[in-house]
Structure formats: structure tokens, C-alpha cells
Write a protein that binds this DNA or RNA. Structure first.
Lengths: 219, 219
DNA sequence: GGAATAGTGTCTCTCAGACACTATGAC
DNA sequence: GTCATAGTGTCTGAGAGACACTATTCC
């Protein structure tokens, strides 16, 4: 097998955030060919001498191209084939990530954050990657704590409620939502911490577990 | 980037079947180093001159190593890193597949079909791949038509009921199961076709869609 | 007091689970 | 008729959705 030719191996990452209640993707302008100068998902080669695994590649690429360390990062899908990259037969291990709006100040100046429903056509198959990531995000929102990673560490129930509605694109009944979230032990109150304003103060909560938590399901 | 060294790129596939109500995996004995002679998941290099994409690799590898064309094949996860393969930093795009017991006669003589709860330790990270595939299979069983791909093209409701129970490892109420399946339009009766025996004949059904169908869910 | 948002009480309707019942074949 | 499995009727309890209510702050 000495003449074995492996495909090109890259990682691409779709980094989502929520700005003014709109789901957005973080894009970077490509500094090298192909598609130099175009907006695309942050991505790069797998570095076998540097990366622990492809999740390490994703973290490195996100940090180096956007300046952001995302609190949630998950492998999405591996895209592959002869035509998706003009450089030749390639494999792209795609990841998606969530970051709260408040952490975007860490971002490099060169990034552009665009609403998912206002994206231009993206190079490679990046539009497909974004579509698949959105599908995963929306699906997983309905049975897990995933949308909470779009909020800062503490948040009110109303904020959590809204982020679920925004991600899923549907109205959710207030009482049903609160029952569901509290029954599942997804979150815990931060005792004594309240969000104040010109109204009754709201209890602040944090995620009970640092990792993603899934709800119960039945057939 | 002329000095760029890509990782090794392989595909591994966990092929499941149901024998006497027990979930089993199809293993092959490795013909080459490393781990020559050991039982492992069917796998092989991505051939950039031959494969359309990595799903094509998976189909080719499954056919060439086991002789089987599986009616259901889905990408599972991409495993990667320096230590999982003694040949060096590698990426394995793992797939899982389902095949009905009745199609195993196509299989090559060299394959071994072992129950998932009786597997030996497998080389590389193949035990992790099987574990992750089982997790996906069990999870997806609860909200999709997935387990039906372990049955031949036509089947009775009782057979479908049993395969769901076997895959999920739980008892399901007969009436609830039938309501659920029929409400979701997962299957359609094959008019006039009945499974006979020393008892009342049973209506035969087929999947209403050739592809996987998901049930409705709510938050 | 009024405005604004937080948080609760409670009714209803749907649906899953439980389980007993009827149906229809072979013998 | 018996046996075996197919298939249905129906009760009940839990929970989601709807929606109105009370609570607590700032002004």
C-alpha cells in the first residue's frame, strides 16, 4: 500500500450565535485560494503533528480564524467526494458550535456574523453544512438543553423560553415550558441572584450540568 | 502547502442483523496487518480513484468484505487521532448498516455474526464504534422506522412489534404500538397478502417509504 | 396607583399504558 | 370443540396546551 493516495482532510465549523433574537452564523473571509476573499465557514487542514483529533482541529481552527472558544462544540457530519473542493478528492469533518452573543467581543475584527436566513451562497458545500447544522440544532433543541448554550452562564426562565422559541421557530406555552424544564432537572436556580428591572425581579438559573442534557422520550 | 501530510483515511462499518431475536454484528477476519487474523469490523481505505464519496467507500467495503448490500446504511461518526491506528494519525469515517437475517445467505463464508452482548474486544477502536452505533440504533428506534430495516420487505405487525422491543430492549404495549405505527403512516398493508399458520392469519405490511421515516415529536 | 414582567392555578383534551375482550385460522 | 395468534374496545391516569390569575418590582 505504499502508493496509497489519501484524500485531503479538512475540518469546517458552523459557529452559531443569537443576536437580537436572530440565529446567526460566524463567517470569515478566506485568506487563501481557492475562493480567496470570499466569505466562508472557518475551516482548515487537519494537522497531524499538532491536533489531538479532529475535534482538536475544530477548536484550533475556530480559535485561530475567529478568536472564539465556543462553550458547545459537536461533530456534525463528514462531507466527502471528488467535487466538493477544487483541490481534489476531499473529506471535511464538519462541526457545529454555539456561543453566546456576549462572548463575541473576543472575536477577531475580520469575522462577519450574518443571520442564517440572510446568508449568501457559500463556497465549497458550506451552504449544505450550514443547512445540516441548522437541522441538527433545531431537532436537538426539542429534546435537549442545547439552546441554553446560546445564553450566558446565568439566565432567567423567560430568556431560556425565548431562546427555545427562536431556535425552534415555534411558540411554546409558558407554563408547559417551565414544567418541562423543571421536571427534567435541566437547570438549577442560582440562589439569591435575580435579574432586576422596572418589573418584578426574575430568578436567575444556570445549567445543572456543564454538558448537554437530553430529555426523556418514549416511542 | 506542498509539504502538507494528510492523515490516513479509512471507513469502517458496523453491520447489524437480528438472529433469533438477538441483535448481532457482522465481523470479518482481518487479512492484512495490523491485527492480521483478528475479528474486526469490515473496513478499508478510502479510494479516491474509485469511490464517489465515503458512503460509496462504505458500500464497496461492505460488499467486498462481506458480500452484502445492506438496505439501510447511514453515516455514524468520524473517529480520529494519533493512537487509534498503529499505522499513524488516522481518520475513520464510521457507518452503520442494517440487513435482514434472510439476506445473510449472500454473505461470504469468512464472516462471523456475533451477538452484540457477546463480542470479544475488537482491534483499533472498533468496540467504541459498535457501542456508538448501538446507542444510535437504540435512540433512533424510539422515533423512527429504523428497526423495520431488520425485517424482510413484508412483515406482520407482530413481527414489527417484536423487532422494536428487541432493538430497544423494552416491552411495548401491543395496542399503543399499533396505534403509534398506524397514526404515523409508517407502513401500509399489502392487500391480500397474509402470514398464515395454525392461527388467525396476519395482515402483511411493507414500509410506506423506502427511506427512514421519523415520528413526530414535541418539546 | 400604573406599567411591566415574573411566576402560579387550574381546566380540558389528548394520548399512552393496561388489559380484557373478540376474531379467525389450523387441527 | 381447542389452541394459537391476530386484532379491537375501553378505562384510566399523566401530562401538554390554553389561559386567566396573582406577585413584585420601578416609576
Amino acid at each position: 500500500m505504499s502508493e496509497y493516495t489519501p484524500p485531503i482532510a479538512t475540518v469546517d465549523a458552523a459557529l452559531f450565535t443569537l443576536i437580537d433574537g436572530r440565529l446567526c452564523v460566524v463567517l470569515v473571509r478566506r485568506e487563501a485560494e481557492p475562493y480567496k476573499g470570499q466569505l466562508a465557514l472557518p475551516g482548515g487542514y487537519v494537522h497531524v503533528d499538532e491536533d489531538e483529533d479532529t475535534e482538536g482541529t475544530a477548536r484550533r481552527v475556530l480559535l485561530s480564524k475567529t478568536g472564539i472558544v465556543a462553550p458547545y462544540l459537536e461533530q456534525l457530519f463528514t462531507f466527502s467526494g471528488k467535487v466538493r473542493d477544487p483541490r481534489g478528492w476531499s473529506v471535511s469533518i464538519a462541526y457545529y458550535a454555539l456561543v453566546p452573543e456576549g462572548r463575541l467581543h473576543e472575536a477577531k475584527a475580520a469575522v462577519e456574523v450574518l443571520p442564517v436566513d440572510r446568508l449568501p451562497a457559500l463556497p465549497f458545500d458550506h451552504s449544505r453544512i450550514v443547512a445540516k447544522a441548522l437541522q441538527r440544532l433545531r431537532g436537538k433543541a426539542s429534546y435537549s438543553s442545547l439552546p441554553a448554550f446560546l445564553l450566558s452562564e446565568t439566565f432567567t426562565l423567560a430568556e431560556l423560553h425565548e431562546v427555545y422559541e427562536r431556535v425552534m421557530g415555534t411558540k411554546l406555552d409558558k407554563q408547559s415550558f417551565r414544567r418541562k424544564i423543571e421536571d427534567q432537572s435541566i437547570i438549577e436556580p442560582v440562589v439569591g441572584a435575580m435579574r432586576t428591572g422596572p418589573h418584578r425581579p426574575a430568578q436567575l438559573y444556570r445549567l445543572a450540568a456543564a454538558a448537554l442534557t437530553e430529555f426523556d422520550r418514549t416511542i
